[in-house]
Design a binder for these strands. Structure first.
Lengths: 346, 346
DNA sequence: GACGCGAGGTTTATCGTTAAATCTCGGCGT
DNA sequence: ACGCCGAGATTTAACGATAAACCTCGCGTC
């Protein structure tokens, strides 16, 4: 009776229920569940397994977690769910963690708040490990963040030295991209999403590469070609339209992200400009979609697979029994150019 | 000493630690934490709050969950992180649940296994509610799925009547899209991603709408125009290329998803065909990106916002104290045409 | 015959939090 | 003087699973 009431209130049968039905102790059931077969005879094991199936038992992960301290879940915080760099990263990471018996779950760093909200709160306690992208977050907040959950940071910001950190070589990548455009004949390269200043945000770093390539080639920097704004498809589209509308001459576009480059491409086609004959275009990130634009987009491959590998390895090593002691590491794979159809042939 | 050891082993301070430092009982701390201020005097409250900050206490969600049965988390299972439709859905849902103090976390229904893996296992026990898209999953498996966690299904498959279910009007939407193309003069409409047969998978349903519109217009159905395959950008791109290569005449394209339509658009442009003059194009889903293609894509809006509303409402009502009794509901918002630049003007 | 040993169990004590019941004590009505 | 009240706390008992310590035999050994 009280048992029925319990069942109705919440949850299915517990280990104790199974134990009672099978005429054994809870621990024996637990041992069967966890495959500790040395401690259980073949006969009892059979009996327990039968009862397990009969009652439709499901392990309660929350309880197990409280006791063992492991959930088998790794969290990934992304700025938003829209497809692009982070969804591809998520897929890559999910594969890798799955290979280690861990499941990846993705959370959005809620719209307006800083990422830190998603850390500082107790939210982390649910995960065995956490991957956090530091985009808008303030380095300050990170400093005073104390968590026991292993964390790997991704992103370009300078972060406290105690964190493992995986990042792209933004400056070099951007310099390579710009240099390629110059080498292929471009003289007036529009920079979409650019941001000057000596901070270390992604746009600032990539802009720095853009500027460095210009200086190296002794090419004048034209401030009117550095277009600020977001990095979405729409932003690329609008910035190119504005350039044309304002009659600012340009013969190449370096968009800070592939998504933005795709938008730029669209605007160019719409305006009747030929790519790469009239205007060359290059992006950054090497998203899988970029192979299927027209023409296929030239871009910077920031070492996506190596980054995913590194994130996974670093986090796993921290999650091990005594991996806590190892000093924090910084991994920055080399960037590489992918020349496709939006830049002229060498 | 033993306290230090404990701290070092795992986790920060517990309620008990705080209580000891503040010279009160655990319950008093708990009451302060949960804002049950009627039970705590102003003075003690101050003291506890001070100690809380001093020790850097963070609530352990797992323990709370075990005790209260609530996590404050809602799960969403998607087939992949990358496709556009699910990312947009996830963003929509995250906003809505956030407004109710719940956080949405997204899981991938692991690559090859059926979605049911993500349900049948204990994984669900972590969530207060779960949204599951039934794409490849077998209806059979769903039948024998017994969980206490409230679940809302999304997707086109017929599902057991005991589940709340939100779906698109695939047939009508596809019929409307096809009819529009015919009305605008199309006579040979290629169907990308089509699948005949009387199943109720998304492609089959949308194909049914395509066929129905043809019959209604007494327009011959040409089997060579029904192109099977996936629904990604690449698939749309390749199918159009194949059509051209095989010299199959067509004057319109109905792509089963917007993503695929974008790929088709690219291939058409590349082939020098003008849209919508030579070939009209229409997609399905009304992804936000489609506004920024060239020309902007005409498409079918399946009622995305209403679907998100419905999913949220249904799940929330099930999550309430005694919402379990309400009979299961099926919600299917009306589809609506969005005429943009890839179809001719009326 | 005392002892050790290991296979196959069971008991006990938590993990951190909270619902519910219980305690304490000064004030107040009759 | 006695009972009652209620604000402000405390104590107790879970939630479900499991690590660690502890039983209990039957059997082989010196």
């Amino acid at each position: 009776m009280s048992e029925t009431a319990k069942r109705a209130r919440r949850g299915g049968p517990t280990i104790a229920d199974v134990a009672r039905h099978a005429g054994v102790s809870s621990m024996t059931v637990s041992n069967v569940l966890n495959g500790r077969s040395q401690r259980v005879s073949e006969a009892t094991k059979e009996r327990v397994l039968a009862t397990l199936g009969e009652l439709g038992y499901r392990v309660n992960l929350t309880a197990r977690h409280l006791r063992t301290g492991r959930t088998g879940m790794v969290g990934l915080a992304v700025p938003d769910f829209t497809p692009g760099y982070y969804s591809e990263l998520a897929d890559r990471l999910a594969d890798r963690f799955a290979a280690h018996g861990l499941r990846l779950v993705v959370e959005r760093t809620s719209g307006r708040r800083s990422e830190l909200e998603s850390l500082s709160a107790a939210r982390l306690s649910v995960y065995d490990g956490f991957v956090l992208s530091v985009v808008a977050g303030d380095t300050q907040d990170l400093e005073q963040l104390s968590v026991e959950t292993p964390v790997v940071l991704i992103g370009e910001r300078t972060v406290p030295a105690r964190f493992d950190h995986v990042l792209m070589d933004n400056v070099t990548g951007a310099r390579m991209a710009t240099r390629l455009l110059i080498k292929r004949g471009a003289r007036r390269i529009a920079l979409l999403g650019g941001a000057t200043g000596d901070g270390d945000s992604m746009p600032q770093l990539r802009t720095r590469g853009y500027l460095a390539a210009h200086r190296a080639a002794r090419l004048a920097i034209r401030p009117e070609l550095i277009r600020p704004g977001g990095f979405r498809r729409l932003d690329g589209f609008e910035q190119v339209r504005l350039l044309i509308e304002e009659e600012i001459a340009f013969d190449a576009v370096f968009a800070l992200t592939d998504t933005e480059a795709m938008g730029a491409l669209t605007a160019l086609v719409e305006a009747g400009l030929r790519v790469p004959d009239d205007v060359q275009v290059i992006g950054f990130d090497n998203l899988s979609d970029t192979r299927f634009s027209v023409p296929p987009l030239s871009t910077v491959e920031p070492g996506n697979d190596r980054m995913a590998d590194a994130i996974c390895e670093l986090l796993l090593s921290r999650m091990e029994e005594d991996g806590e002691r190892r000093p924090a590491q910084v991994v920055m794979p080399a960037a590489r150019l992918v020349e496709r159809g939006t830049t002229r042939a060498g």
